[in-house]
Design a protein around this nucleic acid. Structure first.
Lengths: 225, 225
DNA sequence: ACCTGAACACCGTTCAAGT
DNA sequence: ACCTGAACACCGTTCAAGT
């Protein structure tokens, strides 16, 4: 039965478009996780039957591809800066923020076979910054592979942490410790109690240590060449 | 209807066990991808109905947890070696090989909340090697985070490459180039044509460049402390 | 103790039918 | 042109019933 309220809600809502579908999907995945993103739930969120979505995306893979490309477009690529290093540093920090905002993105990259336009633009911009910074093609390939492996790997590790460990390390570490006898894993126990359990510890802070080690190493190699 | 052949096959087969279920699941995921690993297909492979599997694993998550822990146990942790650096290098290379053998493993780590015994043993061994090598707790935490982010991130990147790019780069790069006009992404085009398309190029070879840069950087910081 | 068949509540996706 | 309802072939998982 179609009530007046239904009809009102339907006429009031903005018309569907691929863009609206993609942003609604991102919002759902951000808030409730990628598992909660089903065509039926997404349709429900948009006040529409699941089948209507197929008027705007070819299928679920197309939906996921679109989401990933939007995520890519959120990374800061501005190439004004004193040198390649500061540009790469800003990009890396921005990528990490994006991956923290959209925890599903790192897991989704895996299966996306075809890179979208934002992704291609991203590749081009990064390689361009390195080349203009004096890197040879080979060195630019090395550098890019290294930086992105670190960025995405860090996001993966961060995401795998027991939820609590990201913000309130101490409590999480305690429940963690309870799971095994300290004698069995002495070094691990030492690290948990003597480091991760300290208040104020946030695994996210580890990012800049590795990033700077990598950027400094690349700088050294570039200068030597 | 139960035929003689059915009965024979069933009596001939080894009795099911958690171990057999886990190894069959790994074989299926290795060969046909994680998407192909369904309880029904796994049961079929073992000559059993899907429901029988629940006698040996609590549910699918338990199955995946078990697979991940076996994968972890395949990483070489032997701690004989001249120094922390060579131990860490061998571990990293071994981890990368494991992740290449089991491409599903890196994607699965994401959702595994509870680390298995092999995983905990792994953590303890790595931290132990670093501590014995003269790293402070803080530096060991930095180093571990950096190395593993790189290892898993590299595996993720490697897995995301279009299939062909892993072995036969030139063909893959050509079809890649056909997808966009070179003028639009000049630096990307330069890299593809001038680097990735060269015969003999294998993205997997990039791993050691980054690994050694990281290990050398860590060594420098350790020596300075 | 282990395995099975039927059933349940979900998926993504198709297709003819509505407006 | 866009949306819907019913249907299809799949999932993971349960439960009572078989041996």
């Amino acid at each position: 039965m179609t009530t007046h309220a239904d009809r009102d809600a339907r006429s009031r809502r903005a018309p569907l478009s691929k863009e609206r579908v993609l942003y609604a999907a991102m919002g759902l995945a951000d808030k409730e996780g990628l598992d909660s993103l089903t065509m039926r739930r997404l349709g429900q969120k948009l006040g529409v039957e699941a089948m209507s979505l197929y008027n705007h995306v070819a299928n679920k893979d197309d939906l996921l591809d679109g989401m990933v490309d939007i995520a890519f477009s959120e990374i800061d690529l501005s190439s004004n800066g004193p040198d390649w290093k500061s540009i790469m540093r800003r990009r890396a920090m921005s990528a990490r923020e994006m991956l923290a905002r959209h925890p599903w993105a790192v897991g989704l990259m895996e299966s996306r076979a075809t890179a979208g336009p934002a992704n291609l633009r991203h590749h081009d911009s990064v390689i361009g910054s390195l080349r203009k910074g004096g890197f040879s093609i080979e060195m630019a390939a090395h550098a890019y592979s290294l930086m992105d492996s670190y960025i995405y790997g860090f996001a993966l590790q961060h995401r795998n942490m027991p939820v609590g460990a990201r913000k309130q390390a101490p409590e999480a570490a305690q429940t963690f410790l309870r799971r095994f006898r300290a004698e069995e894993y002495p070094y691990l126990a030492e690290m948990v109690t003597g480091h991760a359990m300290k208040s104020g510890y946030d695994y996210g802070d580890e990012f800049e240590f590795g990033l700077d080690l990598i950027l400094n190493g690349l700088e050294r190699l570039r200068d030597a060449a």
